[in-house]
């Protein structure tokens, strides 16, 4: 449904997005996770045709965002970081206006507007002037404007930012209920948010995609306080089981071996803050194997996580 290929965007000299590629399947909810200034908003603006990419291509529902931008626009609902609201308008009039410019058939418009207001829970404030609404309700009106034309794709830029815990839960429930019917990309800098709402996560940092995985796996990366890779010469099964048995090692993942078939590589993770290297080294020696290499492993994700918001006040994980 969404296909992003090698998209790069410069602002003057600043490279805001650097060769970003990812795909989103129909009906999937993709989390777009990254700290501030990672390039989330810029990527989303490229997908919504608001900004052109400097290099690379992206297609939404099979249409190129640059060459067929009008076709793309008909099929996306976009909620920017600040909900785009004409605050002097009444809720109903505003949604109706959006339905009209999004190309909803005039005969269906009234029904579409009413349904959307029901779905987003703003029906009972439909005659209120938007500027008199609370932040939470403004956010819902923002969602309503993204939904009113029943788009294939929803692009939501930090949809829960600035809401109170109760509102956050409500908005997340709403988004989850939209998955399946819509393909959704949701950006956030809050780690627990992706595990709660998304099926898959793309992590972006300093404009680059640094990881792509299921949320469960990310949480595991996060709780592992140390990861090392070791290369050991010895019987593979035996090595793996013995290393797993060590008290401070939580997981042993075999990784690809080098040229020498008898030397096996493993990725070890520790749960607590224990230093596992001495223990591992001792185990290898005591079992009569040869230790070829031992080094701390790819901590780039951790650097990213350091800058993410990993805890939330008041909401359940």
């Amino acid at each position: 449904m969404i296909d992003v290929r090698q998209v790069t965007r410069y602002f003057g000299r600043v490279k805001a997005v650097d060769q970003v590629s990812f795909q989103v399947e129909k009906g999937e909810i993709l989390g777009f996770l990254g700290p501030n200034a990672a390039g989330k908003t810029t990527t989303m603006r490229i997908l919504t045709t608001f900004l052109p990419a400097t290099k690379g291509t992206a297609t939404v529902a099979g249409y190129d965002v640059h060459l067929k931008s009008m076709e793309v626009r008909k099929r996306i609902g976009y909620m920017p970081e600040n909900p785009p609201l004409y605050t002097e308008m009444r809720v109903r009039d505003f949604i109706d206006f959006v339905a009209s410019i999004k190309g909803v058939d005039p005969r269906d418009r009234k029904r579409a507007v009413a349904e959307t207001m029901d779905k987003t829970g703003v029906a009972h404030v439909s005659n209120r002037v938007i500027k008199t609404l609370s932040k939470g309700y403004k956010q819902r009106v923002g969602l309503a404007q993204a939904l009113v034309h029943n788009p294939d794709v929803l692009i939501l830029d930090e949809p829960t930012v600035g809401l109170d815990p109760k509102q956050i839960i409500e908005v997340r429930e709403l988004i989850k209920s939209l998955g399946g019917n819509h393909t959704i990309i949701l950006s956030t800098h809050i780690l627990p948010e992706v595990s709660m709402t998304c099926e898959r996560v793309v992590i972006i940092n300093a404009g680059r995609v640094v990881a792509e995985d299921k949320p469960e796996n990310l949480t595991r990366h996060l709780t592992a306080s140390q990861r090392i890779s070791v290369a050991v010469k010895g019987p593979k099964q035996d090595v793996q089981s013995k290393l797993s048995a060590l008290s401070s090692v939580s997981q042993v993942i075999p990784s690809q071996s080098g040229d020498d078939a008898s030397v096996h590589r493993f990725l070890l993770e520790s749960l607590a803050e224990n230093e596992i290297r001495p223990q591992v080294a001792r185990a290898v020696i005591e079992n009569g194997w040869d230790l070829f290499e031992m080094k701390p492993e790819g901590l780039s994700l951790e650097d990213v996580f350091l800058h993410l918001t990993t805890k939330e006040e008041g909401t359940e994980l």
């Binding site: 045709t49 608001f50 009008m70 626009r73 976009y78 920017p80 785009p84 609201l85 004409y86 190309g103």
Partner: peptide
Amino acid sequence: RSGTIELLLTSPVS
């Protein structure tokens, strides 16, 4: 200023 430009320019309006 208000950000509604993002709505306008991502809608199928030329």
